[in-house]
Design a protein around this nucleic acid. Structure first.
Length: 910
RNA sequence: GGGCGCUUAGCUCAGCGGGAGAGCACUGCCUUCACACGGCAGGGGCCACUGGUUCAAUCCCAGUAGCGCCCACCA
C-alpha cells in the first residue's frame, strides 16, 4: 500500500476545516493583478450585512465558486471579489428593534449616536454571513473584501452623485412618492410589492352645488381620502355628465366646493359610476390628472408621515375633523363611512378585490405621499443600457430574461433615491439658510457655493441602498482612481444572480457602468433558479420553511450540499430542495471515498504511473475507461462553458459511480490480482490511478474538499503527472489540487469502436446476471456459462475478455465457441452475435425459465412492433434520412434474430 | 389587463423531432476481501387534454384546462 491511509468512511468536518485553512495560508484565493494570463473576474452580489446565509445565497455562491475554481485551474487570472451591502432600511430596522428591546427610541438617541450603534452592530454581526460563505468553501479573494460604506466606496458614491447632479441627471423636487409609514421613508417604485386584497367599493353621493337634489355618485376604495378631494372627474364624452363639466359639487363633510372636470385618461366609461373623485395628494392617477388640468388642481394633504389624519385639513367641518384627527388611515376609513352614512351620502357598499402596495422591507401598507425627494433622471442612462444588451455586449443566460429587462427599461421611471433614514450614504447636498441655494459637493461644504454664507445644513436624507450597489463592479476595484485592478478585471466576466433583482441591481449596474466606465460591467449575466422548499413555496422565516444551509452542511458535509445545489441548478427552473435529496449526494461522496481507498490499496509501495506500459499492455477495459474519461472531460468542459451546471454534475455522477466504480473497478480486478510485476497489472494500476486523479480534478470545482483530501493522499508521482502550469513554471511541486491544471480532453483517446467492443462484454455479463437473478441462483454459487458465438471473430474477442466475464458474472467455467451447443437442461440468454447458456442440471425450474423467456420475448416483441411499423411505412423509407433507415433496419433484424432464438429456446422447454 | 414559465414513473426533476430517462422511494436476492452511506436483479409511465404541421411528435405550432411567477394607476 502506498500513500497515506484513508479511513473507512468520509468525515467532512475535519477535512473541510483543514483544507480551507490550508488554501488561505497558501494565498490561493488571492488574485495578483500583475500576474500574466487572461483575467476572469466575478463580483459577488453583496449579501446584506443583516443576513445569514440561506439556501439562495448558498446556490448563488456555489455556482460562482465553481466558475472561479474552474477558471483558475484553467490558468486564468481569476478573481472573485467578496463583500457585503449596508442594506439601509433593513439594517436600520434590525438595530431599531434591538434598541426597542432596551426601550430605547432612535430619536431619543439622536442621529449620530444611532449611526454609531449601527456600526457597532455591523462590527459584531456583519461578518456572520462572510464566515458562513467560508464554510461553503467560497474561494473569494478576502484581501479584496469590500463593504458598500467603506471609505473607498463612499468616495465613489459621492463622485457619482455629484457628477450626475452636475450633468443634470439628479434633481430634487416635490413629487408624489411611495411612502412607508412604518419605516418612515420614501421608497422607489420597485420597492413596493403589490398584493391582491379583498376590499370594498364605496359609492358616495356628491351633491351639485347649484342644485342639491342632483347628486353625482362616485365610487372609491378609499373613502377617507375624500377629505383631500379637489375635483370630481368624468369622461368628457360621457353623455350623462358632459354638461356638468365646469360646474362644482359640495364635498360632503367639508365646506369645500370642488369642480367637475373632464379627463379621458382617468375615467373609464365602463367602470363604476362613471364619475371619479380626485385626490391629487394621495393617489398617483389623481396626481397626474391634477397636473393635466389648467390651472393644476390643488393638492391637499390629509395624512401625515405616519399615515394618520392631519388635524388641520382645510375646509373640513370641525366636528368631523375632531373625530378623525390623529386616526390611522385605515381606522379613519370606517369613521368616514359611518359619517357619510349618517348624513345620507353613502349609496351602497360592494365587495371589490384590488391590489394594495406593501413595503418590501416591513410589509406595511405603503401610502402615496407628497414630499420633496431626490431623483435620478433615468431616461438618458437607460438608452445606452438597452442598446448594450440589444447589441449583445451583455448577454443574458438564459436569453429569455432579456425581455424582462427590456420591458422594464423601456418603461423606466425616474428613480427616487432619497430615503428618510439615518443609516446609509448621506446625500452630499447642503442647504443655505441665507440664500436658500443648494450646494452639492464632493467634499463636505462649510459654506454656501453661491453666497458664501456659513449657515449651511447638510441634507438629512441618505441614498437608496441600491445606489451604491449599482456602482459595485467598479467601486470595488478602486474607482474613481485609475487602478491596475480596474484595468485588469473590469469589465467583469459574469454576474451570477437570480431574476428577482434584475431591476433593482442588474439594470442599474449596466446603466452606471456604461455611464462612468464607458463599458459594460459584465459580459454575461447568468440568472439561476430561485430556491423554494419541497412544497414550492418561497422560503421565508414567517412560513417556517427555511432550510438552513449550515445545518445541512453539518449533517451531510459541504461537498454533498454543494453537489446537490449544482445538480438542481437547471436553467429556468425553481429549485425545490428537500433535505433527503442531499443524503443521496452524501452517499456519492462516500462512494468516491471508498473507490479511492480501493485504488490506493491496490497501488504498490513507491508506485509510479507508467504510460508506456499502458500503450503496450492496456486491456480493453483500460482503453474503454480512458475513452469514456475523455468524453466526460469534454462534456464537463462544455457544460461549464455554457453554464449547464447540472449537466456537469450529472455527467460526473454517472461516470464515477456507474462506469468507473460499477464497471471499471470490477473489470480491473482480474489484472490487479495478477502477481506483482505483471505488465497487465501495472497497466491497470496506472489507468486506475490516472482516471481517479483526473476525475478528482474534474470534480474539484463542485466538490472542493473531498477532491483535495483524496488527491493529497495519492502518491506524489500520480499527482505530479498532471500538475498545473503555474507550479511547473515556478519549479514547484504541485501543492494542491486547487492550483493544478483542469483536465482537457484528449480527442484521440475517444474511441467508439472500443466502446462497442466493451458493450458486448457488458451485455454478456448482464445476460448471465439476469439469468442468475431471475432463476434465483445464489450469488455464492459458482456456475458455468456456455457461449455459442456466430463468428470466430466474436469468439476470439470474447475469449480475450473471459476473465472479466468470469469475475463479474461469478463463473467457475466459461466456454466460448462456434460449435458449442445448448446442454439439455439450461437457461438461455441472447445477446448480439451470441447465445448464452447456463447449464442448470437438476436445478432448472422449467416454469421459472418459461416465465423468464416469455418476459424477454414480450419485451423484444414490443420493440419489433415499433420498428416493423415504422419500416413498413413507405413514406418513412423514402423520406427519412438514409442513416436513420439503415440504422433502424439493422436494429429490426437484430431484434428479430434475438426473438427467434428466444422462441426456439422456449419451444425446446416443451 | 399584459407577459413569462410549468404540467414526463409514487415523489423531486432531466430530456427533446426517430426505440420513454435519472435520483429517491418500492420488490426480490446478497453482510462476496473499496463501500450496507453498499452490490446484483426487477416492477412502475395514453410524457395534462384537443387539434394541426411532418414519413415520424413527449419534443414544433394553435387552442383548452390546471398550477406558479412577474409587470400594470383601472376608481
Amino acid at each position: 500500500m502506498s500513500g497515506k491511509e484513508l479511513s473507512k468512511s468520509y468525515d467532512p468536518k475535519t477535512v473541510e476545516e483543514k483544507w480551507y485553512a490550508f488554501w488561505l495560508a497558501k494565498g490561493y484565493f488571492h488574485a495578483d493583478e500583475n500576474a500574466s494570463g487572461a483575467s476572469f473576474s466575478i463580483v459577488i452580489p453583496p449579501p446584506n450585512v443583516t443576513g445569514s446565509l440561506h439556501v439562495g445565497h448558498a446556490l448563488n455562491s456555489t455556482l460562482q465558486d465553481i466558475l472561479v475554481r474552474w477558471m483558475r485551474m484553467c490558468g486564468r487570472n481569476a478573481l472573485w471579489v467578496p463583500g457585503t451591502d449596508h442594506a439601509g432600511i433593513a439594517t436600520q430596522n434590525v438595530v431599531e428593534r434591538q434598541l426597542a428591546k432596551e426601550h430605547i427610541d432612535r430619536h431619543a438617541l439622536g442621529r449620530e449616536s444611532f449611526v454609531e450603534k449601527v456600526w457597532e452592530w455591523k462590527k459584531e454581526y456583519g461578518g456572520r454571513i462572510i464566515a458562513q460563505l467560508k464554510r461553503l468553501g467560497a474561494s473569494c479573494d478576502w484581501e479584496r473584501e469590500r463593504f458598500t460604506m467603506d471609505a473607498g466606496l463612499s468616495r465613489a458614491v459621492r463622485e457619482v452623485f455629484v457628477t450626475l447632479y452636475e450633468e443634470g441627471l439628479i434633481y430634487r423636487g416635490e413629487r408624489l412618492i411611495n411612502w412607508c409609514p412604518r419605516c418612515h421613508t420614501a421608497l422607489s417604485d420597485i420597492e413596493v410589492e403589490h398584493e391582491d386584497e379583498k376590499g370594498k367599493l364605496y359609492h358616495i353621493a356628491y351633491p351639485l352645488s347649484h342644485d342639491h337634489n342632483i347628486r353625482l355618485t362616485v365610487a372609491t376604495t378609499r373613502p377617507e381620502t375624500m377629505l383631500g378631494d379637489t375635483a370630481v372627474a368624468v369622461h368628457p364624452l360621457d353623455p350623462r355628465y358632459k354638461t356638468l363639466i365646469g360646474k362644482t359639487v359640495d364635498l360632503p363633510l367639508t365646506t369645500r366646493k370642488i369642480p367637475i372636470i373632464g379627463d379621458s385618461v382617468l375615467v373609464d366609461l365602463e367602470f363604476g359610476t362613471g364619475a371619479v373623485k380626485v385626490t391629487p395628494a394621495h393617489d398617483f392617477n389623481d396626481y397626474e390628472a391634477g397636473l393635466r388640468q389648467k390651472p393644476e388642481l390643488p393638492r391637499i394633504k390629509i395624512l401625515d408621515e405616519k399615515a394618520e389624519v392631519l388635524s388641520d385639513i382645510p375646509d373640513v367641518l370641525p366636528d368631523a375633523l375632531k373625530h378623525l384627527a390623529g386616526k390611522h388611515a385605515k381606522k379613519a376609513r370606517g369613521m368616514v363611512v359611518e359619517l357619510l352614512q349618517e348624513q345620507g351620502y353613502l349609496i351602497k357598499t360592494e365587495d371589490h378585490a384590488h391590489s394594495i402596495g406593501k413595503c418590501y422591507r416591513c410589509k406595511s401598507v405603503v401610502e402615496p405621499y407628497l414630499s420633496p425627494q431626490w431623483f435620478v433622471k433615468t431616461g438618458p442612462l437607460a438608452g445606452p443600457a438597452i442598446a448594450a444588451v440589444g447589441e449583445g455586449k451583455v448577454r443574458f443566460v438564459p436569453k429569455g430574461w432579456e425581455n424582462t429587462y427590456f420591458d422594464w427599461m423601456r418603461n423606466i421611471k425616474d428613480w427616487c433615491i432619497s430615503r428618510q433614514i439615518w443609516w446609509g450614504h448621506r446625500i452630499p447636498a447642503w442647504y443655505c439658510d441665507d440664500c436658500g441655494e443648494i450646494t452639492v459637493s464632493r467634499t463636505d461644504a462649510a459654506s454656501c457655493g453661491k453666497c458664501g454664507g456659513k449657515n449651511v445644513r447638510q441634507e438629512t436624507d441618505v441614498l437608496d441602498t441600491w445606489f451604491s450597489s449599482a456602482l459595485w463592479p467598479f467601486s470595488t476595484l478602486g474607482w474613481p482612481d485609475k487602478t491596475k485592478d480596474l484595468a485588469v478585471y473590469y469589465p467583469t466576466s459574469v454576474l451570477v444572480t437570480s431574476f428577482d433583482i434584475i431591476f433593482f441591481w442588474v439594470a442599474r449596474m449596466i446603466m452606471m457602468g456604461l455611464h462612468f466606465m464607458k463599458e459594460v460591467p459584465f459580459r454575461d449575466v447568468y440568472i439561476h433558479a430561485l430556491v423554494r422548499d419541497a412544497e414550492g413555496q418561497k422560503m421565508s422565516k414567517s412560513k417556517g420553511n427555511v432550510i438552513d444551509p449550515l445545518v445541512m452542511i453539518d449533517q451531510y458535509g459541504t461537498d454533498a450540499f454543494r453537489f446537490t445545489l449544482t445538480a438542481f441548478a437547471a436553467q429556468g427552473r425553481d429549485v425545490k430542495l428537500a433535505p433527503e435529496r442531499i443524503e443521496g449526494y452524501r452517499n456519492f461522496a462516500n462512494k468516491i471515498w471508498n473507490a479511492s481507498r480501493f485504488v490506493m490499496m491496490n497501488l504498490d509501495e513507491g508506485f509510479a504511473p507508467n504510460s508506456e506500459l499502458v500503450t503496450k499492455n492496456s486491456s480493453l477495459a483500460d482503453r474503454w475507461i480512458l475513452s469514456r474519461l475523455n468524453s466526460v472531460t469534454k462534456e464537463v468542459q462544455a457544460a461549464f462553458t455554457e453554464y449547464r451546471f447540472n449537466d456537469a454534475a450529472s455527467t460526473l455522477y454517472q461516470f464515477i459511480w456507474h462506469e468507473y466504480c460499477d464497471w471499471y473497478l470490477e473489470l480491473s480486478k482480474p489484472a490487479l490480482y495478477e502477481e506483482k510485476g505483471s505488465p497487465a497489472r501495472a497497466a491497470a494500476q496506472t489507468v486506475l490511478a490516472h482516471v481517479l486523479e483526473t476525475v478528482l480534478r474534474l470534480l474539484h470545482p463542485i466538490m472542493p474538499f473531498i477532491s483535495e483530501e483524496i488527491w493529497q493522499t495519492l502518491p506524489e508521482a500520480v499527482r505530479n503527472a498532471e500538475c498545473g502550469m503555474r507550479n511547473k513554471k515556478a519549479g514547484k511541486a504541485c501543492e494542491s489540487i486547487m492550483v493544478s491544471r483542469y483536465p482537457m480532453p484528449n480527442e484521440k483517446a475517444i474511441n467508439p469502436g472500443i466502446e462497442q467492443d466493451m458493450q458486448m462484454v457488458m451485455d454478456l455479463i448482464l445476460s448471465i446476471r439476469n439469468i442468475r437473478g431471475e432463476m434465483n441462483i445464489a450469488p455464492s454459487m459458482q456456475i458455468t456459462a456456455i457461449v455459442k458465438v456466430e463468428t470466430g471473430e466474436i469468439g476470439e474477442h470474447l475469449e480475450k475478455c473471459s476473465s472479466y466475464v468470469k469475475t463479474l458474472a461469478r463463473l467457475s467455467e466459461l466456454r466460448i465457441g462456434i460449435a458449442e451447443n445448448k446442454p439439455k437442461s439450461a437457461a438461455t440468454g441472447v445477446i448480439k452475435g451470441a447465445e448464452v447458456y447456463v447449464p442448470l442440471e437438476g436445478i432448472l425450474d422449467l416454469a421459472q425459465e418459461h416465465d423468464r423467456l416469455q418476459k424477454e420475448i414480450a419485451k423484444i416483441s414490443k420493440d419489433i412492433d415499433v420498428f416493423s411499423k415504422k419500416l413498413s411505412n413507405k413514406n418513412f423509407v423514402d423520406k427519412a434520412p438514409k442513416e436513420v433507415v439503415e440504422k433502424d433496419t439493422a436494429k429490426l433484424e437484430e431484434f428479430k434474430a434475438k426473438r427467434e432464438k428466444l422462441e426456439q429456446s422456449l419451444k425446446m422447454l416443451g
